[in-house]
Simulated scan of single mutants.
Amino acid sequence: MSRRKLTAEEIELWRKVAKQAERMHPEIPQSVHPATLPKPKPTKTPKPRFEAFEVGQTAAGKPARHALKPTIGDSLRASPVQMDTKAFGRMKRGKIKPEGKLDLHGMRVDTAHPALIRFILSAQASGKRLVLVVTGKGKDRDEPGPIPTPRGVLRNQVPQWLTLPPLAQAVLQVAPAHISHGGDGAYYVYLRRTR
């Protein structure tokens, strides 16, 4: 809001009042008419040198739990869906029957990896879309040590093999199987179409 200018009558009234009043500082020269006062500058409140401090204000509430590597099933469940979401939901509920099955029970790593490559590439070449790879849940270790070891070598290796060449170009989605198809001991592998 802007200030209005004083009228001539108001200035004359002010002069009469000023003549009757005693000056507080007679050494300062008297002006002819009152000058407009400058706008007051906002005053800044000084910041305290030190902020208030309470014991333990920066301490964490609870100690963090050990951040162990998530299980293969958890990491596969958290991965984004690459295929049709309706088909993915039906597959996870066990409603889609796999068109092929590879059972890796009792195989060692050196024989299981070539068998997996051969099975996946031949299934894609024959036009299959959903296959089941059974790895088994693995055996519990006899001596549990201070370092946690994953249970089941093939169970942990098969999802990694499916993301590496030459299988990466053939595989669209990997998911843990439904309990009716093997549960945690098997994986659904959804294959890309051949072009």
Rank of each mutant, 00 (worst) to 15 (best):
P159Q: 02
R151E: 07
V171L: 03
G138A: 10
P146I: 12
A175M: 12
P159Y: 00
I147R: 15
L162I: 00
G136D: 10
T149A: 13
K137D: 13
V153D: 06
P159G: 04
G138M: 06
D142A: 14
L172C: 01
Q173K: 06
G152D: 06
G152S: 03
P165W: 00
R155M: 04
R141M: 12
V153R: 06
A168N: 13
K137N: 13
K128N: 07
V171P: 00
D140V: 13
D142P: 08
I147C: 10
D142L: 11
V131Q: 06
V131H: 09
K139Y: 10
L154D: 01
V174H: 00
G145E: 14
V153E: 12
L167D: 00
E143S: 11
N156E: 13
A168T: 09
Q157L: 14
K139L: 14
E143L: 11
Q169S: 15
I147L: 15
V174L: 01
K137G: 13
K128H: 12
P166T: 06
W161M: 07
P176R: 06
E143D: 15
G138W: 05
L172W: 02
R129Q: 14
G152P: 02
Q169R: 14
L130W: 05
K128F: 05
Q169M: 11
E143N: 13
R155H: 02
V134M: 11
V171E: 02
R151T: 14
Q169D: 15
D140T: 13
Q157F: 05
K137Y: 07
Q173T: 06
A168H: 09
D142N: 10
R129N: 10
G152H: 00
P150V: 14
R155E: 02
K128S: 08
G138T: 09
Q173G: 01
K137C: 05
Q157S: 12
L162T: 02
G152W: 00
L154R: 05
Q157W: 04
V133F: 11
P146Y: 11
P148Y: 08
L130H: 06
P144Y: 08
L172V: 00
A175Q: 04
G138K: 06
L132N: 13
V153N: 05
V153S: 09
L164W: 05
L132I: 07
K128L: 15
L132W: 10
A168C: 01
P176A: 08
L130I: 12
K137V: 14
R155L: 04
G152T: 09
R129K: 15
A168M: 05
Q160S: 07
Q157N: 09
R129W: 03
L162W: 02
N156F: 07
P165L: 04
Q157G: 00
G136I: 12
P150Q: 08
Q160Y: 05
V174T: 11
I147M: 15
P150E: 09
D140W: 10
L162A: 01
L172H: 03
I147A: 15
P144S: 09
P150N: 08
